[in-house]
Write a protein that binds this DNA or RNA. Structure first.
Lengths: 119, 119
DNA sequence: TCAACATTTGAACAACTGTTCATATGTTGA
DNA sequence: TCAACATATGAACAGTTGTTCAAATGTTGA
């Protein structure tokens, strides 16, 4: 009764000024969610492989399945997510759809990621 | 019987040379997995907020809970993942543990990510 | 028009993830 | 030593995700 969980307990060790100042500098919820979302799209091994495969060539779904060692259906599902986040673009040539990287951002993000991984 | 799924069907549209050349240029499984792993760690909104909060100050778990609006337990679980990937470091001062960014890689990765998001 | 094929889509399932709650660990000051 | 507190940890639960299988689109050449 005397010690409620939200009123006292969790306020005891807080550095108020620092917290207030930090909150001021925080980006909006929209931005943090957008960042989390793009990293989520990049957080799957199959999708990483697809993006690496597209680094030098445009490739069709069949090719990507062969390169990454997954089924065409699986690749297609992944490509849908990559398309939704504008990480890849595509063009149709007859029955075949060729995918390629949307821009060079992906490669730069990868470089930074690799920089952290291999340090 | 005549048309087996792995023998013929999925080999029909493949551009063999391009596929072979692309496979040559692919990074190792270890590398793609490591990349996927680091992006997975960055793919959660709470963890993104924690890292942004640590951009200017070192902060204790309580502070981080207040800034991010989550429970201390939740923050602590997230910090464990961030520690495991060497994205944050920490120092103990009495009962309080202060966390800070491990290096400037995180910020650079964020910059690239934001570049893609806000374009 | 039709068969063949490349791709996409949807449902279903197991595996994984984030949060909460309860409990444990460490640290301080009395 | 002990209570108080900051943090960490483990189990459990709902929600999400990646894959597979089956079926549906497009698209071409006959």
């Amino acid at each position: 009764m005397s010690v409620e969980h939200d009123d006292l307990c969790s306020v005891q060790c807080i550095h108020e000024e620092k917290v207030a100042a930090t909150i001021e500098l925080m980006p909006s919820e929209d931005i943090t969610q957008a960042l989390a979302h793009i990293f989520k799209t990049l957080s799957d091994n199959s999708r990483i492989k697809i993006l690496f495969a597209l680094k030098h060539n445009e490739l069709c779904v069949c090719d990507l399945a062969a390169v990454t060692g997954s089924s065409e259906s699986s690749v297609s599902h992944h490509l849908r997510l990559l398309r939704a986040d504008k990480l890849v673009k595509y063009r149709r040539e007859g029955k075949v759809v060729y995918y390629s990287l949307a821009d060079e951002h992906v490669e730069k993000i990868f470089e930074q990621g690799l920089g952290h991984v291999t340090e």
